[in-house]
């Protein structure tokens, strides 16, 4: 079993090389640290009919059904279903044993949706699906290790990470590209940044699950601030209170909120991060002046003004 280290979590992964997304190679870990959880695949324990039967028998245990996945509660943890890839029967995440099994089918199956109402995702390859299941497993364990994944594009400025977060389509990438173009900064991650509360501060980590940006670094950087973006007809920057920062962060977090326990965890981590971090709201146009406005605000804060 190979070891990987993403953010500050070491985990074991037993997966055939041909099923492994190329980005994972950047996170291989060869040191002698204990693993937090393990992930294996299985082709024998379950049939397609078994997977369907479980859904029927445990309908009341369904936690969420989105256009991407369905999550069922089980005694030992959670079962994930991915509707549009029939070769993936389900994924069992045993949160008591810290182990996940991706059940794969060897049967010829008809590619029909197993969760009614789910949209097709024809652009994802089988390897992509496995890669995103690994992400879902990782995000399930991460909050219990004081980590919160945030939908964001993150730059490194003055050796600190500045996380630009917003809902899809707002212009995160457009804005961070302005920083790259005009202020010569480096990018840490183009789509999801892991924020980690550690004994000596809060840190940002680049993640391999970088969406369409294809940009990430396997790097740990002290967190400088979080900027929540919205589109506007003029550029304004406002410093957020710990409360507004926490709410904004919760809304952009990818941490699971399937149960009250998980939602509470997301609240707790968001509150802790926001209370100890510069949180800004930038209403902006997609221009250099918007990036300059935030940069000057950060510079003033760094100089103690």
């Amino acid at each position: 079993m190979k070891k990987y280290k993403i953010a500050d979590l070491v985990f074991g992964l037993d997966l055939k090389d041909e099923l492994l997304h190329p980005s994972m190679a950047d996170f291989l870990y060869d040191k002698n640290a204990p693993v937090t959880f393990t992930v294996t695949t299985d082709t024998d324990a379950m049939t397609h009919a078994d997977a369907i039967e479980f859904i029927k028998e445990h309908e009341k245990n369904r936690l969420i059904l989105s256009n991407y996945m369905m999550v069922m509660k089980a005694e030992w943890g959670y079962r994930f279903y991915y509707q549009e890839e029939p070769r993936i029967l389900c994924c069992d995440v045993d949160t008591t044993a810290n182990h996940a099994v991706i059940h794969l089918s060897t049967e010829p199956v008809t590619p029909v949706s197993r969760c009614h109402g789910c949209a097709a995702s024809p652009s994802l390859s089988f390897t992509d699906y496995i890669f995103y299941i690994l992400r879902d497993i990782f995000f399930t364990f991460a909050p219990w290790h004081n980590m919160i994944p945030v939908h964001s594009s993150t730059i490194i400025y003055n050796s600190r990470a500045y996380v630009f977060s917003a809902r899809s389509g707002t212009g995160k990438t457009t804005h961070t590209n302005l920083w790259i173009e005009h202020f010569n900064v480096d990018i840490l991650d183009g789509d999801v940044t892991m924020l980690s509360l550690e004994d000596d501060g809060i840190f940002a980590y680049g993640m391999p699950w970088c969406g369409t940006s294809m940009k990430y670094q396997n790097k740990k950087v002290p967190l400088g601030g979080i900027v929540f973006l919205s589109q506007a007809k003029e550029n304004t920057v406002t410093e957020l209170s710990a409360f507004d920062g926490a709410l904004s962060l919760m809304a952009r977090s990818f941490a699971p909120t399937w149960t009250k326990e998980l939602s509470s965890r997301n609240c707790f981590l968001s509150e802790q991060v926001a209370a100890n971090t510069l949180c800004l709201h930038l209403a902006c146009l997609p221009n250099r002046e918007a990036a300059l406005l935030v940069k000057e605000y950060i510079d003033r804060r760094l100089s103690g003004v």
Binding site: R62, L63, I64, M250, T257, W258, K260, S263, C267
Partner: peptide, 10 residues
């Protein structure tokens, strides 16, 4: 605050 949980988040 009152926050949604589970399917309600979706």
């Amino acid at each position: 605050v009152v926050i949604p949980v589970g399917q309600n988040v979706v």
